[in-house]
Amino acid sequence: MDNFNIANIFIKPDFENFVEVLLIIFGTLLLIQSIQKLFPWIANRLHGASRLFILATIPLLRLILILTAFILITPRIIEPSLQNLIPLLGTLGIALGFAFKDFVSSLIAGVVAVSERPYHNGDWITINGIYGEVKHIGTRAVQIVTPDDTAAYIPHIKLWTEPILNANNGTPALQCVANFYLHPDHDAVRVKQLLHDVALTSPYLNFEQPVVVVVQDQPWGTHYRIRAYPIEPYQQFHFISDMTVRAKAGLKHLGVTFNVTHAIPNI
C-alpha cells in the first residue's frame, strides 16, 4: 500500500470498453430524459391519486437508472476489488468533500428525498417561505412552481436544516382556508350555517373530506375560517376565491358588517 498508485487500479483502456461506457451513459441519459418527459405528460392527462403516483415514480426510477449505470460502468473502468475501491472512493471523497461540499450534500439529500419522500412530484410544499407545486425532483435540487407561475429551484440540502411544510403529502386532499373578518355584532349561528353552506355548495368541493367552520372572537371583531378540501389540489385558488366571493354576497345579504381595521394603528 505504501507504493499505491491510483493509476494502477484502472483497467487498461481499450476502445471496446470505451464504447460500452459511452453507450451506457448515453442510454441512461436517454432513458432519464424520456421518463422525465413522458411521465409528466401522461400524469397531466390524469387526475387525483393516479396522477400523483405517476409523478412520484419519476425520481425513484431515475435513481434506479443512475445506480444501474454506475454498477455497469464500474467494472469496465476499474477492477472492482475491495483493495481498489477503498483507496479510490477515499480519494474521491476527500477531493469532492473539499471542493463540492454543498453540492455533494445536496446529492446525498436528493437520495434521502427519494427514499424518505418528504415531498413528491405534484405536492404543494413550503420551503423557506416559498410555496408552490413540486414539478421536478432533480438529483441536486427540487423545482417548485409558485402560484404566480415562477419556478424556484431549491437544493435538497435544505432538508437537513429547514422545515418542509407539505400541504397534501402525496394525496389529493389539500385543505383550503377562507378567512372572514366580521364586526362582532351579528347572529353567529346564522353566519356559521351560511359559511358551511357556502363550502357545501361550491362546485370545487371534495365531499369525501369534512367541512369545518371555525369561529374565533378577537379584540377587533370575529374571525371566521372555512376549512374544506377541493377535488384536486390545483383547484385550491379557484376554490378559495369561489368561497370568498359567494360568502361575501351571502354575508351582505344577511346584513353582516365586515370588520375594517386601520392599516396604521391609532389613526
Binding site: D197, V198, T201, A247, G250, H253
Partner: peptide
C-alpha cells in the same frame, strides 16, 4: 334546491 349558499 339549488347548489348555492342560499339554495338549500
Amino acid at each position: 334546491f339549488l347548489r348555492h349558499a342560499e339554495g338549500l
